[in-house]
């Protein structure tokens, strides 16, 4: 019993220490965000890595998700003679939920892992220490450009993903479910509101922040050796994915509960 209590207590203390470290890390990012020097080359390189190179993954995922959604809603709607809702539900579902969440998760898998592995390797090979001896703050050089790039790039990815997802629904709707091309498009657009799109993009920005912060955080606290880099990579992806799903709930609650 005492051992169990001690273990629980130790776990709780470790959790508190972890959360404390994360809060301090976020605070250090904020304090370095607006103070020069700014590393523009690192920022543009991150935009390419996070935004441009993630486009194929997000695009393919969104296309198939939109198509599958159209099939599911058609099958479900047929039970109530409501097949005509397919275009509007696909559009709203993609733009509000599936586009941001699936896009965020795909980017988390691709980008959080790569950031954690890259920074973790730099940490264990003393490249982070080398930055300090070269009078360069590692948070400013390695973390800030990635966080800003992710916050800006992920909403764009979500926007592109939303469009491709709706396109996926349109392709399946018109080729497999016998919808008229024009009617499908009109129904998709008519039932979609500006706030639906904007809320998805805001979610994208929040998810981008989560992904980059988690990748950088676990990379920077990476312990020595290949095992440490592997552990950091795994922790970054798992925590970013869980936090994205949790944040999605709270954002949805905040945006749409009323």
């Amino acid at each position: 019993m005492i051992r169990l209590t001690a273990r629980t207590g130790r776990l709780f203390l470790e959790l508190c220490s972890f959360v404390g470290e994360l809060i301090i890390f976020c605070f250090r990012i904020l304090t370095n965000l607006l103070v020069p020097p700014f590393f523009l080359r690192a920022f543009f390189s991150s935009i390419i890595q996070i935004g441009w190179l993630s486009l194929p993954v997000v695009g393919i995922t969104s296309f198939f998700t939109g198509g599958a959604l159209a099939l599911q809603i058609y099958a479900g709607g047929a039970r109530f003679n409501a097949e005509e809702v397919v275009p509007s539900i696909v559009a709203i579902g993609m733009v509000r939920e599936l586009g941001p969440v699936l896009g965020g998760l795909m980017v988390a898998a691709r980008v959080a892992s790569s950031i954690a592995a890259e920074i973790g390797t730099m940490k264990v090979t003393e490249q982070v220490d080398a930055l300090i001896t070269l009078s360069t703050e590692p948070i400013k050089y390695l973390v800030v450009p990635r966080v800003i790039a992710a916050v800006l790039a992920v909403p764009v990815l979500v926007g592109v993903g939303d469009s491709i997802g709706v396109l996926g629904g349109y392709v399946i709707g018109t080729t497999r479910l016998d919808f008229n091309n024009a009617i499908y498009l009109i129904n998709s657009i008519n039932y979609l509101e500006f706030w639906d799109v904007l809320s998805g993009l805001i979610k994208g920005a929040v998810f981008g922040c989560i992904i980059s912060v988690m990748g950088c955080f676990f990379g920077m606290r990476c312990e020595k050796g290949a095992r440490g880099v592997g552990q950091a990579t795994k922790s970054a992806v798992v925590s970013a994915s869980v936090l994205i799903l949790a944040a999605n709930y709270f954002l949805t609650e905040a945006f749409f509960s009323s």
Partner: peptide, 26 residues
């Protein structure tokens, strides 16, 4: 500082490693 393993930035070409302080910061 010369680090044991070199600690060169592998994302940068050699000359940018050497001139790092001249390309960044004050």
């Amino acid at each position: 500082m010369l680090f044991q393993g070199g600690a060169l930035f592998d994302s940068l070409p050699v000359w940018q490693n050497v001139a790092f302080r001249y390309l960044n910061g004050k």
